[in-house]
Design a protein around this nucleic acid. Structure first.
Lengths: 191, 191
DNA sequence: CCTACCGATCGGTAGG
DNA sequence: CCTACCGATCGGTAGG
């Protein structure tokens, strides 16, 4: 049974850091802030982690992995169905990790090299998955001819806003959010 | 003739600060960074401004004003035409202020009270303009029945990504970007 | 616009 | 996990 009391201190540090990084930003979060939330002294944190940036790295790379695993689960079907699945999968990662995905989207820039380059390469690779689906949809004439990169990044941009408001206790399930977004982006607002 | 040499030092400070806030974030930008870019000492900046946060306030509230002026220019027409105009107007503000709009979108949270509340109220008011247009479109049956707030915020989220890549020297004009986004969001990806 | 400087806070280490 | 502490840097002021 996984309860609050038996998760490791290291995991507690990462969870609380995630919440603080989302709320205040990486730079504006001090190790004293983090220690305060954990109820220990700032210096004690360093028994469990090497540096502040190490926490950021862990969060960013774990999320990258989650996004890849999600999109790798998309089955070979028509581009429209694939895109719908990819959107739902992407939203599922966000809704299951609203804090960590916020950090993933906005705080990655505080990574230093070589992590920064590695991160950006992964993100680019992930974006390509969406670009490819749209490309195939244009080729099969399911999607209107358009700039595939422009379309893919616009689409992702609208998906990535979900972490701002989604609450697991809210009235919409993760799947419903994904389905609505897929509907809106594929069919447009017009009737 | 407006050249680099005759704009006021105060304006130079705000412009360079905008660029730094966009690139590094407000918290990670120090007054020494800013002074370094300006070629003066950090202490000298305070002859022209009161505090670091004052610069942030100026940027955020100036942009809010620009967005409102833009959307106030939207003429009374069909909801579809209104939305198209509103999108183009919104994109025009972003493309004319890629730095300041990035600060407006991401750095506002470092404002302190009462500026913070005032800012959020303005932003909420602005979002309502889009919600209202969509509401009218649903009522007139031009748009599919959907959650109007969900639709409006998803739409804005995709528009607000443009500042990341737009360059005035690029191949697409601001108007073209706005038109493409309006087309994609109103008609969807599907053919 | 500069020099000189302030108290506060930063990320992090030593040693137990 | 704590106490004690490090050098560096922070936003900002005084006085010229």
């Amino acid at each position: 049974m996984l309860t609050e009391s038996n998760i490791s201190r290291k995991e507690q540090i990462e969870r609380q850091a995630t919440a603080l990084f989302k709320r205040k930003g990486f730079s504006a979060t001090s190790m004293r802030d983090l220690a305060n939330v954990l109820g220990i002294e700032a210096a004690s944190i360093y028994s469990h982690i090497r540096s502040k940036e190490e926490i950021l790295q862990k969060i960013c790379f774990r999320m990258a992995k989650e996004f890849f695993e999600a999109i790798n689960g998309v089955e070979e079907e028509s581009p429209t169905k694939q895109l719908e699945q990819a959107i739902i999968a992407h939203i599922n990662v966000i809704t299951n990790n609203t804090g960590a995905s916020a950090v993933f989207f906005y705080e990655w820039r505080h990574l230093s090299e070589p992590s920064l380059s590695e991160f950006l390469e992964m993100r680019c690779e992930y974006e390509k998955r969406f670009i490819t689906i749209i490309e195939e949809g244009i080729r099969s004439r399911e999607f209107a001819a358009t700039d595939k990169k422009f379309a893919a990044l616009t689409l992702l941009s609208s998906l990535n806003w979900v972490h701002h408001w989604y609450m697991p206790t809210g009235k919409m399930s993760s799947l419903e959010v994904g389905q609505r977004l897929a509907e809106m982006l594929i069919n447009g607002l017009k009737k």
